[in-house]
């Protein structure tokens, strides 16, 4: 549904996005992570047909953004970082205006979109009286009112209090069930992990893309943590198993990187028992998306 091929955007001498190639399929939520200035907003704007790429190409809902931006725009719903609502108009007036601009003839669509984001009760209130969270919900309704196959969300929970952010996240989780391609730019790693099928880490260039678990495994491998009853110095050196990539001891915790934990863990445990180790717990080490992100971004900085 979204496909970019070597997408590049320069602002004068400065490169904002370089050689970005990725794909978002229908029904998939792709999280775009990256530090400030990484090119996330520029990417969203290029995909929305608002900015022309300096090089490369992007296809959105089957249309080329460089050649047919007028065909791309009706097929995309955009939630920019700033909701950009008309504060003097009511909730319904805002939504009706955009619905009509998108050529939505059926007024029921407006009511459906309002109901979807839980704003039906407040439809006659001026936007100026809404909280930030409710405004963000209205911006989501605006992006959905023409039922686009592609949603581009640029930090939709930015600046919201935890409760409002959770409401928006819950709503996004519902939306991701529909058959849409969603690109979600966010700084919130927990949000990305919860909502996104795959994560793309961008820092002008694409650093990595994949499912959160896949990225963790790719960067850190899969490590097993064996908690022993007491420290056993020298144990890592005598393990001597072909499937063990590395082993280290930290106090009473033994960290073992294995190729396939599902197949190799029983063999590992048997060997440890043979060596006289008293095992309390065996678990897979939990890596967070934050660790993956920092590893990628800081690794890139060091490079």
């Amino acid at each position: 549904m979204i496909q970019t091929l070597g997408l590049t955007r320069r602002y004068g001498e400065r490169v904002a996005v370089e050689d970005l190639t990725l794909e978002v399929k229908a029904g998939e939520v792709l999280g775009l992570l990256g530090p400030n200035g990484a090119g996330k907003t520029t990417t969203v704007r290029m995909l929305a047909g608002l900015l022309a790429p300096s090089a490369g190409e992007a296809y959105v809902a089957g249309h080329r953004v460089t050649r047919e931006p007028e065909k791309v725009r009706p097929r995309v719903g955009v939630v920019p970082e700033n909701p950009g609502l008309y504060k003097r108009l009511t909730v319904r007036q805002n939504l009706r205006f955009f619905a009509e601009l998108y050529g939505v003839g059926d007024p029921r669509r407006v009511e459906e979109a309002l109901a979807l984001v839980g704003l039906a009760e407040r439809a006659e209130e001026p936007v100026a009286t809404l909280s930030k969270g409710l405004r963000q919900r209205l911006a989501l309704a605006r992006a959905l009112v023409h039922d686009p196959p592609v949603l581009l969300l640029d930090e939709p929970t930015s600046g919201l209090d935890p409760e409002a952010a959770k409401e928006v996240r819950d709503l996004l989780a519902e939306l991701s069930l529909a058959h849409r391609a969603i690109l979600l730019c966010t700084h919130n790693l927990a949000e990305a992990e919860r909502l996104c099928h795959r994560i793309a880490v961008l820092k002008t260039r694409l650093l990595a893309v994949g499912a959160p678990a896949e990225l963790k495994a790719r960067l850190f491998g899969r490590r097993i943590v064996v908690t022993l009853a007491r420290p056993a110095p020298g144990l890592p050196q005598v393990l001597n198993l072909p499937f063990v990539r590395s082993a280290s001891l930290d106090g009473a915790k033994l960290f073992v990187a294995v190729e396939e934990p599902e197949r190799h863990n029983p063999l590992l445990v048997r060997r440890l028992v043979e060596l006289g180790a008293e095992i309390l717990y065996v678990e897979e080490e939990e890596r967070t998306l934050e660790e993956v992100y920092l590893e990628l971004v800081e690794g890139d900085r060091a490079a």
Partner: peptide, 13 residues
């Protein structure tokens, strides 16, 4: 007001 971006994202020429 920051309302121009959503407006420009519509099919309005």
């Amino acid at each position: 007001q920051g309302t121009l971006e959503p407006l420009l994202a519509t099919p309005l020429s």
